[in-house]
Amino acid sequence: MAKLTIDGVEVEVPDGTSILNAARQIGGALVPPAMCYYSSLKETGGKCRVCLVKVAQGSTKDPRPMPKLVASCRTPVGDGMVVQNLTSPEVLEARKGVVEFLLLNHPLDCPICDQAGECDLQNLAYEHGASTTRYEGERRTFEKIDIGDKIKLHMTRCILCYRCTYVADQLTNERVHGVIGRGDRAEISTYIQKAVDNDFSGNMIDVCPVGALTDRTFRFKSRVWFTDPKDAHRNCTKCSGKVVLWMKGDEVLRVTARKDQYGEVKEYICNECRFEHKKVSDWTVEGPRHIDRHSVIAQNHYEKIDLQKLKKEVERQLEFQRGKQLPENEIHS
């Protein structure tokens, strides 16, 4: 076990854990953002450089600071390590720079993009980035590619996080796409538009942090914030069958896997669940999906609330009314 402090908060984690995962054990605002790391895919991380943190003290044995900012998703913890994330202006500055780099070639077509509203890059740029660009060159553009009849690839929007290639590697038995080219010429290759027809290929839509890979069956159907997400399940022989239905009225517009608070899928779903079952009668609807209240999707979205939590929230507000500082929020997360 190793004991380390992140932004002054102490946490004990097993040896070999990455700094990012240690921070996620604490939770809250001090968790570094991540665009390429994906906890349920092996070997991911280390590409986008968004999760950079400052290690002010390597360990108790070797208290020297690390010479440069490190990628927290790939750096294992040490006993007595002191990590700075939000408390270090250097890290925030670097992160702002990284966001600017990620946005260099990213088109400003959020009004058109189906990912808008649930896009990791959008959130990241909003929180950490500058509102203007200094880049004056031409953005690189590509033709849109249909990968099979269910998935659309907008290479222009890709930030080269490589998550989808890991999906192809690890979830599907036969790898059919990867990355060709290097540096600024790198692009997702689909084996010359060969259809990706594995049972789990649809998961590359979910793992894509931007709108590069989108669901063709949902293309331009509705903006996500006008849909009503509901947890649902069905008996599926291939996967867990636990999904989120994105509904409009009685119509199922889209089916996705369930993402956790870091936008990561833990239980992947098969293509049959994702693309074939677009009727409510195919599913057992459990109830409204929990949506973060800061998300635009939370517009007109109502959830059942835990009465115990509600009581706590009322007490919290009463405390606030008595003129004390607002205690830590639990109900809205």
């Binding site: 959020c110 009004p111 058109i112 903006r223 914030w225 635009v296």
Partner: peptide, 9 residues
């Protein structure tokens, strides 16, 4: 207009 839905929201 690109039907981005921002006016509606």
């Amino acid at each position: 207009c690109t039907a981005c839905g921002l006016c509606a929201v």
